[in-house]
Every structure is written in structure tokens, then in C-alpha cells.
Design a protein around this nucleic acid. Structure first.
Length: 284
DNA sequence: ATGCCGTCTCTCAGACGA
């Protein structure tokens, strides 16, 4: 079974490259992030021609996740239990407290979850495609939201892991697990993606029994999965490993190969992320 | 370097990304 995860940075803009990549790489299951696509507008017919069923979760301009599968697609979950939404700035602050439109206060106080998680069962494996909040800066409300989102994810996955079935939680976690996972740690001092609380959130996921399946880089010593579009970062290999593949212990023990498909980051019109491909041996 | 590129939309400017 071949599993993969890829932040495509718009499924509409990436569709020709996505279809070519599917045809060439032929994963059984592909988790997508940043589809930036309403679920009902997802190009399901196009991927169906290549044999894939689609489960999509998206509400338009931002975020958006999906699972494509040739191995079955059951028990689809749009988001996870307890998933928080972005609550904005502190409602206790005097400035915000003066808002007198009840419906706005209500909407701000009860934010709905964004389209950042979709789960499905594919060929006996529970699969989660995840797109963690960016966090922007550690002082930002978006950073608090990011940590809250990870805490809720941990609680939701704890229940599923406890069921004992093979499970994969993969996608764009927007956290570099270690200093070796960014091209220059000195550039990221006081930035998101590398702070201790974010790394602790990953450690708590691993403490559930999830193993970080680290892919082979294919070029250079570091398995980066993201390179900024700007300033020739990709060609200088100034990247980050933020797209992660966390698998339950029994499943990670069946991993035969894992690699970053950096070829998909080359050429005309790429995503700024490369896919991570993981081959798992059949269960005996 | 508050820059660089790319994508989106109540588009020709601003927000967002990491």
C-alpha cells in the first residue's frame, strides 16, 4: 500500500500537475492540504478518471483538506470532535468589549472550525489529512489557536489510537520537529514553527504511540518538504520539514520506504511543498 | 530586508502563507 501527503497550495491551480503526479506515482491513498476549494467544487470527476474516490472538506478561499483513495473510503469525518475555530483577539479587551452588535459578538465567541482535518478509513487504515494553523507570530491570537488546535487533535486521536487499529495522521503540521528540520535555525529565533510549545505539541502526539516516519530526502542530507517560492530558496535547498507522517507503531513497523518527492517541487507551476510518499507492506 | 513568489477574491490591492 502506497500512502502520500501533499500540500498542493490550491487544487485548482495545481490540477494538471496533480493529475500527472497521480498517474506517475500511483499512490493508493493521497492526503491533500490547502486545497483552497469548496468541497462541492473539488475536481472529483478528474481524479475519478484515474481511479480515485474523493472525500473533500473545504469552504472556499483558505485551508481545505481532502483524501483521495483507490483502496476504499469509509467513515468520513469532516473535522474532529472538539476541534476549535479561530476565536480572534481577546474578547475581554476593552476595545472589543465595546462592540454592540450582538450577532458579531456571538459569531466571534462561537467560531466554527476551519477546514483543517478530514478522516477516512481506507483499506483498513484510519487516515487523517491535517492542515495545522500557521500561528503567524508567537504573540498572535493565531498562535494560541494553533496550540489549542493541536491539544484538541491530541485528544481526538487518543480515542482513535486506543481502538488499536492502524492509523496515520499526516499532513502539513506547520511545525519543524527539530532544529535540523529548518535550513538555518538562527533565522527562526522567536518565530513560529520552531517554538518549544509547538514542538511539545508534536511530542504529545508521539506520546500517544504515533511514530514520526522520516522520509529519505532524495537529495542532500535533510528531508525538507517546504521551500519558500521566493529568492531561489528551493534551488539553494533552504527549506523546512513541516509535512509529517505520524503512524501507529504497528503500521510504522511495516514501512518499507519513505521519501520526499522533490521532483514535484521543480519545474513550472509547482506547489511550495513537496509530497511525502510512504510505502507500507501488506499486513500478514 | 516590513523585500523576494504565488494564490485567492466582493481583484487591478490586499491578505495570507511559514
Amino acid at each position: 500500500m502506497r500512502l502520500a501527503t501533499w500540500n498542493v497550495n490550491s487544487v485548482k491551480a495545481r490540477l494538471p500537475r496533480l493529475l500527472a503526479w497521480l498517474d506517475e506515482t500511483r499512490p493508493d491513498v493521497l492526503c491533500l492540504q490547502e486545497t483552497k476549494c469548496r468541497a462541492d467544487l473539488f475536481p472529483a470527476a478528474e481524479v475519478a478518471e484515474l481511479g480515485y474516490e474523493t472525500a473533500a472538506h473545504g469552504d472556499g478561499r483558505w485551508n481545505g483538506v481532502a483524501v483521495l483513495s483507490k483502496a476504499g473510503l469509509e467513515n468520513i469525518s469532516l473535522g474532529f470532535p472538539g476541534e476549535p475555530g479561530y476565536g480572534g483577539e481577546d474578547l475581554e479587551s476593552p476595545e472589543v468589549a465595546q462592540i454592540e452588535l450582538p450577532e458579531l459578538v456571538e459569531a466571534a465567541a462561537l467560531p466554527g472550525p476551519e477546514a483543517r482535518a478530514i478522516g477516512a478509513t481506507c483499506g483498513g487504515i484510519r487516515v487523517w489529512s491535517l492542515y495545522a494553523p500557521n500561528g503567524r507570530t508567537p504573540a498572535s491570537a493565531h498562535y494560541r489557536y494553533k496550540l489549542d488546535w493541536f491539544a484538541a487533535l491530541r485528544a481526538a486521536l487518543a480515542d482513535e489510537v486506543a481502538e488499536g487499529r492502524p492509523l496515520v495522521a499526516c499532513g502539513d503540521f506547520n511545525v519543524a520537529p527539530d532544529d535540523a528540520d529548518v535550513w538555518d535555525p538562527s533565522v527562526f529565533v522567536d518565530s513560529t514553527h520552531v517554538t518549544a510549545p509547538e514542538r511539545q505539541a508534536l511530542a504529545e502526539l508521539r506520546a500517544l504511540g504515533l511514530h514520526d516516519v522520516v522520509p529519505t530526502p532524495m537529495k542532500g542530507p535533510f528531508p525538507y518538504t517546504y521551500w519558500d517560492y521566493r529568492a531561489g530558496m528551493f534551488h539553494k535547498n533552504m527549506g523546512m520539514r513541516i509535512d509529517l507522517f505520524y503512524a501507529t507503531e504497528a503500521l510504522s513497523g511495516r514501512v518499507a520506504a519513505a521519501y520526499v518527492d522533490r521532483e514535484a517541487r521543480k519545474g513550472k507551476g509547482p506547489s511550495d511543498h513537496a509530497p511525502v510518499v510512504v510505502d507500507v507492506q501488506d499486513d500478514d
